[in-house]
Design a protein around this nucleic acid. Structure first.
Lengths: 210, 210
DNA sequence: ACCTGAACACCGTTCAAGT
DNA sequence: ACCTGAACACCGTTCAAGT
């Protein structure tokens, strides 16, 4: 075939196909990705110069863009904004849980995602956290959200809860399963609420005495 | 050579070599692992029947075994035990940060690790959490610890903090860097303390009203 | 500029063959 | 039982060749 009159591929089409593949299979390879687009593997590199890791960073943007807040509304205090930030982040990831393990290996460089970090730091400092603590708060939220996103993507059977050998774990798992709704989402909500309540106690506290 | 008079390999030796490789290179492959042991790749499968994923689960045990508490001391309340549990877990992972991304893809099946989960649930229920909430508490702590462990292994430059475009993020990063000690460890301590303080507020609360 | 097929240096895993 | 080399079906990436 060689060069077609109108391009067969585009960066956007490649990323969309990659996301479909990850959602369906839990992973992707360059050859499979090419096959799903009816194209040869080497063609991809014309549109995604950085190769596989470029596609992965593209997936981060595709999954997160527009789902994370970048400025607070008039009435929001730091806690309300942090809650919205964390929910947006976790919601974006949980909608495509299989991409999360791909992202954890790479540094965040996507500008849109970084803007939301910037906004969160801004709100925290405005509302009484000192600079260093604000950074730790953002990082701690980031840790919890990332862990929760991994949790959302984990197999239903996260822990091998053998009732014989681990009766209390097994009973707790059953009790949580008996509740309505998504177990992983409920865990996230409990953890987020608790984390924010605890951070409120730290806010404005003398940094050196902590 | 064929069969040697005394075995060249053992499961333990393979796992130890794999951990060395992961600590040094950030990853391992079966051929490299074999080469580091002066052996051919196919030999490994006699001692690690499950292949690569078997090695990964073995690494979890090697890294965590003995580092996570399995019963509380007489004077410990739930909070003290949960703190010890989370610190042990995070400390084990942070000592070998590159293994963490390998583990996140797989379900926990190691008995020693599961025993410590069992112990934590037990303590929580004894101290006033209902079964379902205890499970969510364990899961939330697990999420935070796992996220923190990933954070500990991430490149020093977690976020691409361009001072031009993201001045507040950049300033907060600088402020945190100016503090003594490990940034990631400090984030973990702040988050853990806050999370536990927040969970204390939930303990014994009417489950249905929450 | 954009797509191709061939090529390179890798993977993980299996298995008959050796002792 | 334990190690080997050969083999299989894959990877990610590069590049000269085509239009």
């Amino acid at each position: 075939m060689a060069r077609p009159t109108s391009p067969l591929l585009s960066r956007g089409a490649i990323l969309a196909a990659a996301l479909d593949l990850v959602d369906a299979d839990g992973d992707f390879t360059m050859p499979r990705l090419a096959r799903s687009l009816g194209v040869s593997a080497s063609s991809l590199y014309h549109h995604v110069p950085g190769g596989r890791s470029d596609v992965v960073e593209g997936l981060r943007n595709l999954v997160c863009a527009g789902r994370m807040p970048t400025q607070r509304t008039g009435s929001e205090d730091w806690r309300a904004f942090a809650e919205r930030w964390a929910r947006g982040y976790r919601g974006a990831m949980a909608a495509h849980p299989h991409v999360v393990p791909l992202l954890t290996a790479q540094t965040v460089s996507d500008p849109e995602v970084l803007s939301s970090y910037e906004a969160l730091v801004d709100v925290l400092v405005q509302d009484g956290f000192d600079d260093a603590t604000a950074l730790h708060v953002v990082a701690a939220l980031d840790c919890f959200v990332l862990g929760s996103a991994l949790d959302a993507g984990a197999p239903a059977q996260v822990w091998d809860d053998d009732a014989e050998h681990r009766p209390r774990l097994s009973r707790a798992v059953d009790a949580a399963r008996a509740q309505p709704g998504d177990r992983s989402a409920a865990t996230f909500e409990l953890g987020l609420t608790s984390l924010l309540s605890g951070l409120e106690l730290v806010r404005g506290q003398d940094p050196v005495r902590r």
